[in-house]
Amino acid sequence: MLFFRSEEHVDRWCASWHLGRGAVLSLETGWKLAEAWYGPDRRDPQWRRRTLEETEALFAELGFTSEFWSLR
């Protein structure tokens, strides 16, 4: 996941890599995702990876409902 100055730069990068455009997030939304994903303390013995269903619920909460975010 890379940082870009603008959507125009995303499109140029995708073209140079012969990749279709993926998902673009604002920094604010990316920060919400980062907080949710990395906030829980991985030093805690109780920490575990999210299940597929828990990840889907998080994506839905953040508004990530397009096919791009589908995990199945």
Binding site: S6, F59, F64
Partner: peptide
């Protein structure tokens, strides 16, 4: 968060 730019996810989840 503050900054002038965006994030791009190239690979489907």
């Amino acid at each position: 968060v503050r900054g002038d730019g965006i994030m791009h996810f190239a690979i489907r989840a």
